[in-house]
């Protein structure tokens, strides 16, 4: 099992609120989907207030990652396999 914290990633937001991360994904990712808490991504179970927004931008996946003492991070990880797995769930980004 690969821990998210051991994977190379870009931190888009750090110590943010969960709502800020969701809004960023919905507004800025070309495609995104909503999943429930406990959804498995990168061998981890997602933590979040439903609905959890996950973004797909090319081969990159953007998702919230919450730590009890550090708040929520919005992470971007390049992984063509996970991006492809999410593709059928995704819709185009919000505009306006």
């Amino acid at each position: 099992m690969v821990c998210v914290e051991d994977m190379p990633c870009e931190v888009i937001f750090s110590r943010a609120s969960f709502a800020e991360c969701r809004e960023h994904v919905e507004r800025h990712c070309p495609r995104y989907c909503h999943v429930d808490p406990g959804f498995r991504l990168f061998d981890s179970y997602l933590i979040g207030v439903p609905p959890i927004a996950i973004g797909v931008d090319g081969d990159a996946v953007l998702f919230p990652y919450t730590k009890p003492c550090h708040g929520t991070f919005l992470l971007r990880i390049e992984d063509a396999g996970e991006a492809a797995r999410l593709a059928s769930r995704c819709r185009d980004r919000k505009t306006g």
């Binding site: 969960f18 429930d36 808490p37 933590i47 979040g48 730590k67 929520t72």
Partner: peptide, 13 residues
């Protein structure tokens, strides 16, 4: 906010 996020997750599950 993080504590609430974990609580919402547990409630859902």
């Amino acid at each position: 906010d993080a504590g609430l996020t974990f609580a919402a997750t547990a409630r859902h599950l």
